[in-house]
Amino acid sequence: MEVVDPQQLGMFTEGELMSVGMDTFIHRIDSTEVIYQPRRKRAKLIGKYLMGDLLGEGSYGKVKEVLDSETLCRRAVKILKKKKLRRIPNGEANVKKEIQLLRRLRHKNVIQLVDVLYNEEKQKMYMVMEYCVCGMQEMLDSVPEKRFPVCQAHGYFCQLIDGLEYLHSQGIVHKDIKPGNLLLTTGGTLKISDLGVAEALHPFAADDTCRTSQGSPAFQPPEIANGLDTFSGFKVDIWSAGVTLYNITTGLYPFEGDNIYKLFENIGKGSYAIPGDCGPPLSDLLKGMLEYEPAKRFSIRQIRQHSWFRKKHPPAEAPVPIPPSPDTKDRWRSMTVVPYLEDLHGADEDEDLFDIEDDIIYTQDFTVPGQVPEEEASHNGQRRGLPKAVCMNGTEAAQLSTKSRAEGRAPNPARKACSASSKIRRLSACKQQ
């Protein structure tokens, strides 16, 4: 084909351009004929944790799935940006308080904090938690009735009371019990989460009196709706648990309003109706937990002794299953770290194939690490110290990083047969305790 000078094309009309061969290198194709290559998922490591896909996002930050490269346990990490926390009232204080509380709590029905990582340079905090497959609110939203069968609701409620009793025994008032803060594992274990607005009572406090509340409006008791200066913290949790039980068994809320002012007005009056299909035992329990006067409201001991709580409820309806993943529609909620794991395991070791967030990740503290002497050669063979940054567990980050890069360049065919977990650990520049 004859090559045409581009400067001469402006002298031709459209018809003349076609005659000189423009149609031979300008093609129009339908979008259905285009085959897009999927974007390669680059592996990203935060300390010893391999990052997966997004699980959810809230006002405080994002939650992603991660894999512990040492234990191969599935975890969830809450990623918090200090810049964003400053824009939220009491944001930083709530996060630090939640970390302090979770560090000393150990119960099967309370979410466990596994690790805390802090990135000084990017001003990011990573709260590594045990993995929960789904939230209770997500399960309720997945069915038209917006409720659980009585047998399933009873099982979840009993676990909620177990976890709540443990928190109260530790002198902690949750203040925000609701389905949105109750998570579930694949085995059906309920976990109380989000202790950001919780309050730890003084060890020598005479009672459970509280003065502040930041919980969700629909789950607040009349004493808070009416603006009382002080109130019983434990009875606030009992009320919120009662509203939660009402919601998961009926699909409704005892109090509603077009806006928060109308909602608080209705809560302050204390008038509500219980659907007739709840039955006398459940209705009596709800009335005891939603008692207007805090002094007359049920205690956890009274809830445990109630006939509806103690009764064994046979399954009359099919239980609400864990819904498919909202993004991938995966009904099994498979591990989202698998594509990243395959990338590390299947590809040659190259620095361009993975990302390490930083050479140094500070753990379990908000301060910069200490310094240790770096050896410097002298005339008599002895070495003197220069400062060298280290990880919180004493690992020399720069030395590990250099060693990792040197190993990656060394030709050794046997290394390709290593397991995925050992490869992740070798790529991680800074081991965590």
Rank of each mutant, 00 (worst) to 15 (best):
P387K: 06
C418H: 08
G180V: 04
K262W: 06
K81D: 09
K83T: 01
A397G: 07
N393K: 05
T363I: 04
Q432W: 14
L45K: 13
F298V: 04
Q371S: 10
F234L: 04
A347M: 13
E145Q: 09
S213V: 06
P294V: 10
Q364H: 03
G394F: 08
A43T: 12
H168M: 02
C158R: 12
T402L: 09
G385T: 14
L290Y: 00
H174F: 01
A318V: 07
Y49M: 08
A417D: 11
S404C: 07
L72K: 06
G381F: 07
V114T: 11
T363S: 10
R103C: 06
Q123F: 04
G370P: 14
Y340S: 10
L183R: 01
P369H: 03
Y131L: 11
T71P: 02
R426F: 10
I46E: 14
A429I: 15
V368W: 04
I46A: 12
P217C: 02
E65W: 10
T212V: 02
L245C: 01
S378F: 11
N94E: 04
D284G: 06
D284S: 09
D348S: 14
G279I: 11
E374H: 06
I172R: 02
V128H: 03
R39N: 03
K329M: 13
L285Q: 00
P369D: 15
W239S: 00
Y261C: 06
G257L: 04
F309V: 01
E120C: 02
G135N: 15
I248D: 00
P339C: 14
P294E: 10
L45M: 09
G135T: 15
D194L: 00
N247S: 10
M18C: 05
H27S: 04
T212A: 11
S213C: 04
A198F: 03
Q170C: 13
H345L: 08
K146S: 10
S142M: 05
N226M: 02
H168Y: 02
K62V: 15
N90A: 07
I46W: 01
P222H: 01
Y36I: 06
D365I: 12
Q100G: 08
H379Y: 11
D359R: 13
D176H: 00
Q399I: 06
E265D: 10
N266I: 11
T402G: 07
L72G: 12
H313W: 06
Q123M: 14
E351L: 11
E57M: 09
R75K: 13
N247A: 11
F148W: 02
I29L: 06
W332C: 02
I29M: 05
A318D: 13
G370R: 08
E291H: 08
A43G: 04
T244Q: 00
T24I: 06
L17R: 08
M125P: 01
V95A: 09
H345M: 13
W308C: 00
C391T: 05
Y126L: 02
G215L: 06
L201V: 04
K311P: 06
E256I: 06
F148Q: 01
K48T: 14
D365V: 07
Y60L: 03
L201D: 04
E65Q: 08
V372D: 13
L183Y: 14
G163Y: 00
F219K: 00
N266K: 01
I99V: 04
P319Q: 11
M127D: 01
L263A: 02
L183S: 03
K287P: 01
E349Q: 08
G61L: 03
L201P: 10
E407W: 01
G394S: 12
G276A: 11
D365E: 05
K78Y: 00
F148V: 03
W239R: 01
